[in-house]
């Protein structure tokens, strides 16, 4: 049952991790941040990543009201968020956004910035999912 800081510090132990944050994507507020920000500062980075996350979480292409694949599988109990994570690959790094599902009404994601050469994207993705679940697990 980690808090925000424990969660972020654990994310920073991943190989190639350069910076991490927990961000609210409606307001663009960084609820917590550690390491280096890829942009000017943590607050500006939070506001910018929030805009990307909001687009993905809200547009129908990614979050359709009736997912035909859900219906095909007979999966009527659609728990969980429609979008789980986002990856942006740049020349020098990986940017990972993992949406966090909470029991209260929120719009929060975990953000991790990795070095492109030393980072392990697959491992980071799995660990971030794990962290996002433990953050809200009683």
């Amino acid at each position: 049952m980690p808090g925000i800081d424990e969660c972020l510090l654990e994310a920073m132990t991943l190989p190639g991790a350069r910076g991490a944050a927990i961000v609210d994507w409606t307001s663009g507020l960084a609820l917590g941040s550690v390491g280096d920000p890829p942009g000017g500062d943590h607050e500006a980075t939070a506001a910018e990543t929030a805009e990307v996350a909001r687009s993905a979480a809200e547009y129908q292409a990614f979050a359709p009201k009736d997912d035909p694949l859900d219906t095909a599988r007979g999966d009527t109990d659609r728990k969980g968020l429609p979008v789980e994570d986002l990856m942006v690959t740049t020349r020098t790094g990986f940017h990972l956004i993992r949406f966090v599902e909470t029991t209260f009404d929120s719009s929060v994601f975990l953000y991790l910035w990795l070095d492109r050469h030393t980072g392990n994207l697959a491992l980071a993705r799995i660990r971030l999912r794990d962290l996002s679940e433990r953050l809200v697990l009683v």
Partner: peptide
């Protein structure tokens, strides 16, 4: 709330910061 297992530390912190700002 956290010690009695009603809310996790992570959720309490996230909700609290949201309410504070």
């Amino acid at each position: 709330l956290v010690d009695s297992g009603r809310v996790t530390a992570g959720e309490l912190e996230m909700c609290h910061i949201g309410a504070l700002f």
